Simulated assay, not measured.
Amino acid sequence: MRTAASTLCILFTACLLPLAAHAAQTFNTGTRGGGQDFAYTYNTADGQARALQFRLNLDDIRRGSEEFRRISTGDSQAYRLAAMQKVAQGMQNPNLDIRLTPIPNGIDIAMRGRGIPRNVLEQNYKVLEEAGRNADSTFLANHMYAVARSAGNVDFIRPDHAAIAKRYTGAMQPVAQAILQQVPGASQNPRAFINAALNWLQTIPYDTLDNRTTSNGAGFQTPYGLILGNMGDCDSKATALAALIRAAYPSLPLTIIYVPDHAFLGVGLPQTDADYALSTQHGIFVLADATGPRLSPLGQIDTETRDKLKRQSSKTELVPIR
């Protein structure tokens, strides 16, 4: 008997390129002792000067900027094969021969048994296939990826934005505290805090993060990778914004919103007459797009994104509350 266990198909999506150059910003960073200092100056939408400064642990910022990497089908196949081989070793029997062979898009399972009932062989196949599927899930989780389904019902692999936002909630506390200090009364006014966080993130230069010479080449960066490199794309900025908001307001509902070629955040705050919002099965979420360079406050998104929300189906993923 033989069958093939399919291997993960690794596909990536890219954010829509913004139409303008990045907003004016000055950025300085330097290390001293065991920390790294970050300092920014930029303007608000009405032209007021803003300054933001914070300090992060040096080892944490470097580790955080390096932990997310592009993965390949070959990587996932090797991990799956090793897991299946370990299970096959537990089935060792003088009368049972199991051979696992990597093939394009899968692992070929060849099994031959002498005097072993067919139903036992079939059960062994199922156990090996399940081991392969579990290995895929573990591999993705270890590398901070998740399986998603497009509007056209096609499965693909993308960064696990919600899990990464949760992972970085504590790490973004120093940044959140700096923003809270920057805006009087922000600790009691989530909208003011979010607008200040959006303003800062939107002035960080946009980059697709596909070039391995200037970035990690993975098309995404963690919040610490975004800060250290001072560049990011739409889903990297949405993830950083989610971690920032969660650090300041632990119980505020948040969801990552996906439309074709774009990702942004939904915030569970009361909707005003001026806000654009998305109604979901989990409630109404006011829209927040950190991409830039346009300085858009909470509740305001560009015309193209609004059109996509109207004309095409969107996907959402709640950010876990820790």
Rank of each mutant, 00 (worst) to 15 (best):
L278P: 05
P253F: 03
D261G: 00
D261M: 02
L278R: 09
S251T: 11
V259G: 08
A274M: 13
D261E: 07
Y258M: 05
A274R: 12
A274E: 15
D261Y: 05
D273M: 12
H262T: 03
A277G: 03
V267N: 00
A274T: 14
D261N: 13
G268D: 00
P270W: 03
H262N: 07
P270D: 08
T255M: 07
D273A: 15
S279C: 10
L254D: 05
L265K: 02
Q271H: 02
D261C: 01
Y276P: 06
Y276S: 15
Q271P: 04
A277S: 11
S251L: 09
A248G: 01
A277Y: 10
A274W: 13
Y249H: 15
P260I: 13
I257Q: 02
L278C: 07
V267G: 02
V259T: 06
H262R: 04
D261H: 00
A277N: 09
Y249Q: 12
H262K: 09
A263T: 14
T272R: 13
I257H: 00
T255C: 09
H262L: 09
L252S: 09
T255I: 05
Y258Q: 04
Y276G: 05
I257D: 00
D275P: 12
G268M: 02
T272G: 14
I256H: 01
D261W: 04
P270R: 09
Q271F: 05
L265I: 13
S251W: 08
A277H: 06
Y249E: 06
S251Q: 14
A263C: 15
T255Y: 00
G266H: 04
G266M: 02
L252D: 10
D261S: 02
S279W: 12
P260C: 08
I257K: 01
G268E: 05
S279M: 10
S279T: 13
P260D: 13
A277D: 08
A248S: 04
Y276D: 14
D273S: 09
L269R: 00
D261V: 08
P253A: 04
P270I: 04
L265A: 07
P250H: 04
P250G: 07
D275V: 13
Y249S: 08
Y258A: 10
Y258E: 11
L254T: 10
Y258H: 03
D275E: 15
G266S: 06
D273G: 14
F264N: 12
P250W: 07
D275F: 06
I257V: 12
I256W: 00
